[in-house]
Design a protein around this nucleic acid. Structure first.
Lengths: 345, 345
DNA sequence: CTGTTAGCGCTTTCAC
DNA sequence: GTGAAAGCGCTAACAG
């Protein structure tokens, strides 16, 4: 940096505070001086030093973003770039910058978050996932540090502001769809059971079954790691049951792609032999074969709402905890078809 | 924030400057006072204020990261999370934070970058893509602001530090593979022709053809948007030529998935009817059907090298421009098979 | 409406 | 080895 507020003040023949006011676009400043100062800034190529401003104003105008860096391939899920886009659009609009919280392990992540808040590096934090007994959430909560989580907090749900879908209902809806089109043996494949989203979608699945008078079979509930080959055996086991399912509710589009791949290897075709529905409606869901019947959770909206909400919390402190539900919508495509199969055409 | 360096100083019975030196782990400080001060910090729950430190030391200990936020679905490419992981691991290790440069359009992106450097919000910038006549690169260059690009700069290649694969060679290698296994009619499908990586891979493709004595057909070179449905017609057109290709070099794994989808719709099977090879080896390349023969470009390494390099540049200014090439390696899987097809088994 | 005066919390000469 | 003092560049009362 080079030219400072003092330089501009001198050149414009005013006090530094006046320049500061011009920067802040303070209303009670005469158009004349405003113009004069602006011109000086322009001519001298002045740009306010963010750090100095932050120190003086005791804010950072930045939001911390916590991604699940640690978890295996989770970050490869297009879900995250997509919420990021949403967040970024609002942040940009409101003139906030985004700083990433990084770390390889859960402990490192927690450390990173602690450093962020202790060293006042950020005004608020955005948690892009929610897991059971998350030490990060507890920490933020006890520090009374502004944060919002994308997802449903497993604990203290009404103390922490969060934006989420009604995943239970969404899962109920899509499971019901499968049932409605004739499937009676419907299984569920979920990811990390520590993730609240997994639990919610499992619960919705179970509720739909119950409401349809179908009993919930324990061995119809499978948890496989995200896209992991470890999941293959689980899927195979599922399909070699005496009464294998004819329908599958999978907790995530990307996981679905892995599952379909495993199934095809085993000679099981989707949707002819098995119908699959899933969640998120990432872009890939349209171009994969078969195109996926999936619930669109409006990922970007999750991001924009979360960011807007956090910024509001940050600006006027002591906002009461809020809960925002983004609506969902089923996209009917070709991975799920009626059963029993229509008579051969 | 609450407890400051002064409080600690008072409590420990030393001067603030001494505390500062303890924080910085200054060698010429007696073990005794060091211990005393550390204990005070501990007891009082002291954490240095990053902003104040930055202002005083005139550095930010942060790196700006420029992702192609604007470009359609590009961000959905797992390539980016993966370099981010690499970058983040080094940044974390070296105690740098990462701040994202956000914007919806190219102009906004440029503005964001300008703001970052003008307002001294970051010590250096990481550009995660390289396109022809990129105003961001020009700007950074003329500002003499430290930055490194992941990819090959289209212009001023020896003035800007960059880490890249030898994409020309990589493309030559993989194209040659296709030729070696019997394909003579090989087409190329690339993405945005403004991206240098696309150009390099196209060039490698052409060179391989020439070296094999195969003439380069203009209508064998197709550019489709990333995953976009617009690409479908292009792919279909390609396949309805009088002499359609039997082999395809596609510039990116994700694009390949879209292409395969289009082909299957048209009743063309991969690899039976058409062999495909591509680039990046993202995780999906293993689980998609067929699993993709693709060149592994070591995405994470691109990230770690870039970050390490930038941090070095930032710490000791006036480093000469460097160019780092990450080796590549072909992963042979099942999307490409010999032609003419082996006699029916 | 504008100037004056203190800092924000830390680092960094320069003495001792 | 440690302290005193002077900022880093800006904002924010408080006057006027």
């Amino acid at each position: 940096m080079d030219v400072t507020i003092k330089d501009v003040a001198r050149a414009a023949g005013v006090a530094p505070s006046t320049v500061s006011r011009v920067i802040a676009d303070n209303p009670r400043i005469s158009p004349a001086t405003k113009r004069k100062v602006k011109q000086a800034m322009e001519e001298m190529g002045y740009h306010p030093n963010v750090t100095a401003r932050n120190l003086a104003s005791r804010t950072t105008k930045s939001l911390g973003v916590v991604l699940p860096f640690s978890a295996d391939k989770a970050l490869q899920n297009p879900f995250f770039p997509e919420v990021l886009r949403g967040i970024s659009s609002i942040a940009h609009e409101m003139d906030y910058s985004l700083v990433l919280c990084t770390g390889e392990t859960d402990e490192e992540m927690l450390e990173a978050v602690k450093r962020m808040v202790y060293s006042s590096q950020t005004d608020g934090i955005l948690l892009l996932y929610s897991q059971v007994r998350d030490p990060i959430q507890s920490f933020l909560l006890e520090q009374k540090f502004p944060f919002v989580v994308v997802g449903r907090p497993a604990e203290n749900g009404n103390q922490v502001t969060h934006v989420d879908n009604d995943n239970i209902q969404a899962s109920k809806d899509i499971t019901k769809h499968l049932i409605d089109i004739g499937h009676e043996r419907v299984a569920f494949i979920g990811g990390f059971p520590e993730l609240v989203v997994t639990l919610d979608r499992l619960q919705g699945y179970e509720e739909a079954l119950k409401e349809a008078g179908i009993s919930v079979e324990e061995n119809y509930k499978v948890h496989t790691e995200f896209l992991k080959s470890g999941g293959r055996s689980a899927v195979r086991a599922l399909m070699s049951l005496t009464h294998p399912p004819t329908g599958l509710v999978v907790a995530d589009d990307l996981m679905t792609i892995g599952v379909i791949s495993t199934l095809e290897e085993a000679g099981i075709h989707v949707p002819e032999d098995l119908s699959i529905v899933s969640f998120n409606n990432v872009y890939l869901a349209q171009v994969s074969r078969p195109a996926l019947t999936t619930v669109d959770v409006h990922i970007q909206a999750l991001g924009t709402e979360a960011a807007a909400c956090l910024i509001e919390n940050v600006q006027r402190r002591e906002q009461p905890p809020k809960r925002i539900i983004i609506p969902h919508k089923i996209e009917y495509r070709s991975s799920a078809i009626s059963r029993p199969a229509p008579s051969e055409v």
